[in-house]
């Protein structure tokens, strides 16, 4: 990304996930999804930004980031799906739900939203085998309650 695009990309992201937002900023969320889809480096950069925010101890900030993730998975293309479908990103989600890592201090709402998203992706994106593998591991470890 050229520096100018970088700044715009980051500004859009932080606007869409700002903890000071009263409600979900759908304009900001949609603008971010559009931008990340256009830029070659968009998907990997977006997943790094999202992973960091999703691990925030602030519930509202994490929920906004998960909403951005959910929207982008619906509206963005295969390049973003493939990036989210890598263990490099899935491991960051797993850390949030796992008691061995961040799970014990993460709000229940955030943990159930992550598991709900992962489950929906196992149905909607069956070719992303790593998502299924990660979800099955969480089930085996009893982190996913049927």
């Amino acid at each position: 990304l050229s520096p100018a695009l970088d700044v715009l990309f980051l500004e859009t992201f932080y606007k869409a996930t700002n903890p000071l937002n009263k409600d979900l900023d759908w304009d900001g969320i949609n603008a971010f999804c559009e931008q990340l889809n256009k830029e070659l480096e968009g998907p990997p950069l977006a997943t790094r930004l999202l992973a960091h925010k999703i691990q925030s101890p602030q519930e509202w900030e994490a929920i906004q980031a998960l909403t951005v993730l959910e929207s982008c998975m619906k509206s963005c293309g295969k390049r973003f799906h493939d990036e989210v479908g890598k263990f490099r990103f899935l491991n960051e989600l797993i850390k949030v739900v796992s008691p061995k890592y961040l799970g014990s201090r993460t709000p229940e709402k955030v943990k159930s939203k992550i598991l709900e998203l992962m489950y929906s992706w196992t149905l909607g994106l069956p070719h992303e085998v790593k998502i299924l593998e990660a979800y099955q591991m969480l089930k085996k470890q009893g982190i996913v309650k049927c």
């Binding site: 890598k86 263990f87 796992s98 085998v129 591991m137």
Partner: peptide, 15 residues
């Protein structure tokens, strides 16, 4: 399902 080893990725975190 066993995923192929993808060099551009990490291994699954075991918890």
């Amino acid at each position: 399902t066993v995923s192929f080893h993808d060099d551009s990725d990490e291994d699954l975190l075991n918890v």
